[in-house]
Simulated scan of single mutants.
Amino acid sequence: MSSKATDNTGTADQASYVEPGAEFTRDTNYISTRITADGRDGYPVEAGRYRLVAARACPWANRTLIARRLLGLEDALSLGLCGPTHDQRSWTFDLDPGGVDPVLGIERLQEAYFARQPDYPRGITVPAIVDVPTGKVVTNDYAQITLDFSTEWTAFHRDGAPDLYPESLRSEIDEVAELVYRDVNNGVYRCGFAGSQDKYDAAFDRLFARLDWLEDRLTHRRYLVGDTITEADVRLFTTLARFDPVYHGHFKCNRNPLTAFPALWGYARDLFQTPGFGDTTDFVQIKQHYYIVHTDLNPTQIVPKGPELSGWVTPHGREELGGRPFGDGTPPPPPRAEEAVPSDHTPL
């Protein structure tokens, strides 16, 4: 028996099992091929060539949806959306007519992974970018994907696109993002999939110590790094959006709900009400995914009705801290009708 429970047979946003006595460890061996302006890995940035496959339920995929919207890459990079639930084999395109992605012509994302590597041994994860002409997954390295959206896809950014990864702030963004990933983004999973009381206690304490640190950091500054929205904010937001609906109860992260942190709750609402964030957040799919897929944690698969979501659209007062959400840029236009979150899945 392995000494650690690893997320190497499931998907990027869930562990496949809880191993008694084990500490949850995420498998981070992703397909590292990059799509770059110079095409040095064999995949040059080209409009219309690639398809982003994501799921609104998944926090790691939600990052790519936000960045794509903020930067205005919709015309250059098409979007395929998987449903909120899946089996052990793969995410599926059950939201599409006939359960088939209309561009890739496949029922399971697994098919695109196997086109790249027939014996692909790891989890079939979202987000993934697929090369449409060959049907092969190019990359599923979610952390690098959003950075490359900012730095390699610049030829296709919309007019007024914000700089989410400004060169002068990159070292600080990277430092903050790593702390957030270790203790918060992944920290909630270390709580939820801990295999023993001591592993859970350690993960719990580490998570809330970091949330307290973030609360202090955001009390007197509007954004995590600098005075505009950056990659660091995109990475934190997707965990905060899922905190009260899922992580507080389902993953036993229950010292305090998000709403008990004045600065963090105000910060989360500020981002949610910013175009690109709330309009890519689907609370219904988020809850369906975690409570239905994680049968080891929730064997009845009952999806809770709460929490009440109207607070997400209440005034946050964060404008008083200054800052400009898009810097010298502008907000993105409303989402396209075919990509809009259903109105009954959001308080917007």
Rank of each mutant, 00 (worst) to 15 (best):
I124W: 02
I106R: 02
I124T: 15
T92D: 05
V126F: 06
A112G: 10
Q117E: 13
D94S: 12
P97T: 11
Y113R: 05
V100R: 03
G99N: 08
L104G: 13
P97D: 14
G99I: 14
L109M: 07
P127I: 04
P102D: 13
Q117F: 12
I106T: 02
D96M: 14
G98E: 12
L104E: 11
L109K: 01
D96G: 10
Y113D: 08
R108E: 13
P121I: 01
L95F: 02
G123M: 05
P127L: 08
D119M: 06
F114N: 02
G98D: 13
Q110A: 09
R108D: 10
V103R: 04
P121Q: 01
A112Y: 05
P127F: 14
A128K: 02
V103Q: 03
F93P: 10
E111A: 14
A115L: 02
Q110R: 06
G105D: 07
V126Q: 03
L104H: 10
R122V: 05
P102K: 13
I106K: 01
G99S: 11
Q110S: 05
Q117P: 00
P118L: 12
L104A: 15
D96L: 10
Q117V: 04
F93R: 06
P97C: 05
D119P: 00
P121N: 01
P121C: 00
E107R: 15
I124E: 04
A112L: 09
D94W: 02
D96W: 01
T92Q: 11
I124S: 06
L95E: 11
T125L: 07
A128C: 05
E107T: 15
D96A: 15
G105R: 06
T92L: 07
Y113S: 04
P127E: 04
G105I: 03
A128Y: 04
D101N: 11
L109S: 10
V126S: 01
V126N: 02
V103T: 12
R116L: 11
R116P: 10
E111F: 12
L109C: 11
R122E: 13
P127M: 08
T92A: 13
